[in-house]
């Protein structure tokens, strides 16, 4: 059971990672980021309840809150970029280079 839960968690993590690295649309990348963070939550919640460890469970809650804060920041940045009229595509963000 443990292995499968951990397997799901790692798989989701890798999926999120793939989304961040491979996708071009910023919103999709943001989703990937969230997926990564919440996949860790899965593992933490499961392991915490397995060992009846309140620390892990409360950690999961806190991580949720922090992830939410991160989404707020990310979304507002993306919206600001979008507000300039340009489509939010990461390949367009290539003026800073070298």
């Amino acid at each position: 059971m443990t292995l499968s839960i951990w397997g799901v968690s790692v798989l989701l993590f890798l999926a999120g990672l793939a989304m961040v690295v491979l996708r071009r649309q910023l919103l999709a990348m943001l989703l990937g980021l969230e997926l990564m963070i919440n996949s860790v939550n899965i593992a933490l919640v499961y392991t915490g309840s397995l060992w009846a460890d309140a620390e892990a469970l409360s950690a999961a809650l806190l991580i949720l809150a922090i992830a939410a804060a991160e989404v707020v920041v990310g979304l507002s940045l993306i919206l600001k970029l979008n507000g300039a009229g340009a489509p939010v595509d990461s390949s367009g963000l290539s003026e800073l280079k070298g």
Partner: peptide
């Protein structure tokens, strides 16, 4: 889906 994959600097 992405055809021109990861040509943007960020990726």
């Amino acid at each position: 889906r992405a055809a021109s994959l990861a040509t943007g600097q960020l990726n």
